[in-house]
Nucleic acid binder design. Structure first.
Lengths: 195, 195, 195, 195
DNA sequence: CATGAATGAGCTTTCATTCAT
DNA sequence: CATGAATGAAAGCTCATTCAT
């Protein structure tokens, strides 16, 4: 992804760029802004990255790695598929609470997903596919209603979780992952469980 | 919104601009592109609108008027609050199916909602607030579980519906409002109804 | 100059345009501004004038007619050539006091005179040539020193009078033609009279 | 004045821009023209200057530095105040002869001085105030008539000198500073000296 | 390796002017 | 005659990116 292994000090400072992207949007954030907010000279950014887009990719990839890890851990946990779906929802909200800026940036680029196929793939790999697989599992283990459609439902879950989380991040500038997790997970649980 | 009342012929041709915005994104769509796709000369666009941003606003406002109308009609229908929530979900999906481009553009700007407060307000007025009100009503009429949180849940519903719809629009380039409506409305219904 | 004889009501309202030109400069004054300040619709201005430049010409021509008249009256007066030169200076300052905006606009366009030959000609006809002729007369009637150079001196007088007047218009926003006339005419008189 | 210290090579080539400004006027001279005539790419100009206006400022500031220097030298010379005033007049004409284009540009902007206060101040500092001070000195040392008004007279001198010089630059495209200096200085000398 | 300096390629917007009524 | 509506033709300025050191 990067031409060269990114030096650790840069890696941390670069994280500051997400707040710029989150605040002004990707297109309206100039390389100048990224340079300013990170303290890394523009030309140095170009020495390490191929361009502005690649910086965004790198940032989002880092976030999606966190999401994927959280989801993977939740799936690996104990309990029925439905229980573990519950855990996934809470895990995703915890990532959102932990990295609010990056999440806002990611959400902003979701609809751009059509234009950035690798992003669509990454979200799919990190969240949608694991969830879809878990739904299938749940139908098998009898914890999830047999009528659920994996494709639609995984998208639905993603939307329900992220938009609710985003709403709190944007409207209240804070996200209580526990409380919101209870609400969201509860509703989805009742909506999905086998009848 | 526009300085002068927009002549009807322009109004129709301008609708073509949404496809440009949907395809390339707002920032990457040049006024030149809007002019080309609508057949309206650039300077004429500037005669009627204050700038590119205002064209987007006008377009989204038009969509949100449709959403608001559909939601209002659904709410005015018969049945319990839960029944009418069901209708809202289906109505929103029908708007998405009818105006896919505009919906993609709107969704792309959701996370920008923080920066475009009037957009946040408009979405709130068209969808979130009516749904929140209906949830409260449902708790009163006994059709919706008393534990639901209006704020979080209206955001959740919005996310569930729109992201699922968007998924089909982006991934399959077609949205079967009826089928997806069954799935989404069903899940939400089970998740929300009084126990 | 104008395509059609300019209706009297327009003539008066158009005079208001000079203040716009004086304040913002010719190029920075948009036809829109002229329309606004005069209350004459843009398209109507184009119905009567060929363009913005022609409006300026018309305005300056009107001023230069005043200047020419004042100069002519002064020249036609009694006394030696030197006495009448004195009168010219005072007359020019009175015109400046009477039409300060137009004068500022004219002065602003003096150095543009190279590019607007008709303006150079008009200033020459209205001021420089009559003064030059009077200087020659003065050498003949013995009131003006024989060493004065007509060309240079008429330019010098124009500069001395107008820049002094302009200074008061710009710096003090008021011009006391009598007092400044005493100062300027006095100095020029002593500088020019036969020794 | 410039954001960054202007590299010497640019400084020289930029001087070429004055001819463009002088020929077509400031507003009619496009950045493109400046870029072409100087050979400096437009974007590079914007890298060093804040905008077109700032380029003009820089150019005029450079001229006014020359004027101020010439005036200062003349004032520092020997003789009575009247003698040194004589020297100032000749010095100013020599600057005009040496930098005719810049002078035409400066004169074109004099009446704009109201709108560009820093220009008014700079002309005041470079010419008007020193001359006014010298006039006061002359009244003290007895070389200049006690009736002269410093403010009006310094403006008068400025107008007499510059407009005469400008006349030759525009009408004859050449200025013989010596000959014109004799004429102007002579007239002013006779007009100002103590009686 | 890192970076200050430089720039090519656009982009939005403006405005004098025209046209249709 | 007069004018609201429309537009062709720039123009100033920005910014991602490259280069020279």
């Amino acid at each position: 992804m990067t031409l060269r292994p990114l030096p650790a000090p840069l890696r941390e400072r670069l994280e500051l760029a997400v707040s710029a992207f989150a605040e002004k949007g990707f297109e309206r954030t100039r390389m100048e802004d990224v340079a300013e907010v990170t303290g890394i000279p523009k030309a140095t950014l170009y020495y390490h990255f191929q361009g502005k887009e690649q910086i965004l990719s790198w940032l989002l990839a880092s976030l999606l790695r966190d999401v994927a890890d959280a989801v993977t851990r939740a799936i690996a946990g104990p309990g029925t598929a439905l229980d573990r779906l519950d855990a996934i929802v809470r895990a995703q909200l915890e990532v959102m609470a932990a990295r609010p800026h990056a999440c806002r940036v990611l959400l902003a680029d979701i609809s751009r997903a059509g234009r950035i196929p690798e992003l669509a793939v990454a979200i799919g790999d990190a969240f949608l596919l694991p969830v879809a697989r878990l739904l299938a599992e749940g139908r098998t283990d009898g914890s999830i209603d047999s009528s659920v459609d994996e494709e639609a439902t995984s998208a639905l879950i993603y939307g329900a979780v992220t938009v609710t989380g985003l709403h709190y991040l944007v409207a209240h500038e804070s996200l209580d992952a526990g409380r919101v997790g209870d609400l969201v997970a509860g509703l989805l649980n009742r909506g999905l469980r086998a009848r």
